[in-house]
Design a protein around this nucleic acid. Structure first.
Length: 213
DNA sequence: AAACCAAGCAACCGCCTCCTT
DNA sequence: AAAGGAGGCGGTTGCTTGGTT
């Protein structure tokens, strides 16, 4: 219970948003020494952060292959497809979207897709007798893995898109149209070098220079 | 122009699993 | 085989920002 805090560990732990300086320290350290035991890494790098915090920051934001910015319609479809398959297994889903993090997908789901599904469910509920069920299923994001099919049928990505009039979200319709014209049978696109939202660690190096590192 | 509101996202928390000793 | 530590994961929170009134 009352674990005596070891004095060497009793140093204050920083929380909250990361500063650019902290980012640079972490990037530099990993660039030089590679990833390792995160708790040790945090100490060795001189960061007053927990290992977990460092790991999260690195994986979700600083990693060179992290893609940031708009989720493409293809990615959106893939997310819905995989979510229908696996439920809230965000990390598992993220593995199929190179450059995307579980956190980003999770946020995307909660803020966009789930809301959209809720809306669809609300509209749909005017015509069916179990609005609570739909709403609950959409809001909890839990898929019935016990063989119950109702939600899967309602929410299967293809049925959602094609049968339930689940349209691309605002701002994506044009993009979808363009891409459909360009690549009507396009498979899941996950690597788009020209994507303007692509973020690379190289972007950070000039900052390092500016900081005199 | 200011206040309010909602959406989006970064980060934390706590639980679970796996690995090492 | 058991215990402890570290990492992984999903849920949640709270801050920031952009839009609306």
């Amino acid at each position: 219970m009352d674990k005596k805090p070891c004095k060497s560990q009793d140093v204050e732990v920083r929380k909250g948003p990361w500063t650019m300086e902290e980012d640079l320290i972490l990037i530099n350290y990993i660039a030089t020494n590679g990833e390792g035991v995160w708790n040790n890494l945090a100490k060795a790098a001189g960061l007053k952060r927990t290992g977990k915090s460092c790991r999260l920051r690195w994986l979700n934001y600083l990693r060179p292959d992290v893609r940031r910015g708009n989720i493409t319609p293809e990615e959106q479809l893939l997310i819905m497809e995989l979510h229908a398959k696996w439920g809230n297994r965000w990390s598992k889903i993220a593995k199929h979207l190179p450059g995307r993090t579980d956190n980003e997908i999770k946020n995307y789901w909660r803020t966009r897709i789930q809301k959209h599904i809720n809306k669809q469910a609300e509209m749909f509920s005017f015509n069916i007798s179990t609005p609570e069920l739909l709403d609950h299923q959409a809001s909890t994001s839990q898929l019935p893995c016990n063989g119950s099919t109702s939600f899967m049928e309602t929410y299967s990505p293809m049925s959602s898109f094609n049968h339930c009039n689940l349209e691309p979200f605002p701002g994506q319709q044009q993009e979808v149209q363009q891409q459909q014209q360009q690549q009507p049978q396009q498979q899941h696109i996950v690597d788009q070098p020209n994507n303007e939202s692509y973020w690379s660690m190289e972007d950070f190096w000039p900052m390092q220079l500016l900081n005199g590192d």
